[in-house]
Design a protein around this nucleic acid. Structure first.
Length: 113
DNA sequence: TGACTGACCAACA
DNA sequence: CTGTTGGCCAGTC
């Protein structure tokens, strides 16, 4: 290892994403950019998706995470894409005609304290 | 070991 | 306005 990259760095990053996603209140949704920003990697919303890629294996409500448009981009990676919408609807989240979440009402921005 | 890809966002032409 | 490129981070081939 030419350079010490703080082995805990990546784990810490993932852990942060997991924590934030787990903090999403019921009936609310958040965006990748928001999570990335809170995680401190606002410039890397992509990595947030990767974190969720592993989070989908966890009990985290990744279905509450949508892109900036409120579209369920990651639903295709779900075992049951329909389940994602079902869960959100079950939580009281409404969708637009395009199938996008009403960000103006259900958009929840996580904040670190 | 190097390069590409990936559930994104934003800026620039 | 639309199209393309850049950027970031991590994982996989």
């Amino acid at each position: 290892m030419a350079k010490n990259k703080s082995i805990e760095s990546k784990e810490d990053f993932f852990d942060r994403v997991y924590k934030i996603v787990a903090l999403i209140p019921l009936g609310k949704v958040t965006t990748y950019g928001a999570i990335a920003e809170v995680c401190g990697i606002k410039s890397s919303a992509r990595t947030v998706g990767w974190a969720l890629n592993g989070a989908k294996n966890s009990n985290l409500p990744c279905h509450r995470v949508v892109n900036r448009f409120g579209a369920l981009t990651g639903k295709l990676h779900f075992e049951n894409p329909d389940l994602m919408k079902e869960l959100l609807e079950s939580e009281g989240v409404e969708f637009d005609s395009d199938g996008n979440v009403l960000m103006g009402k259900y958009l929840w921005i996580p904040k670190l304290k």
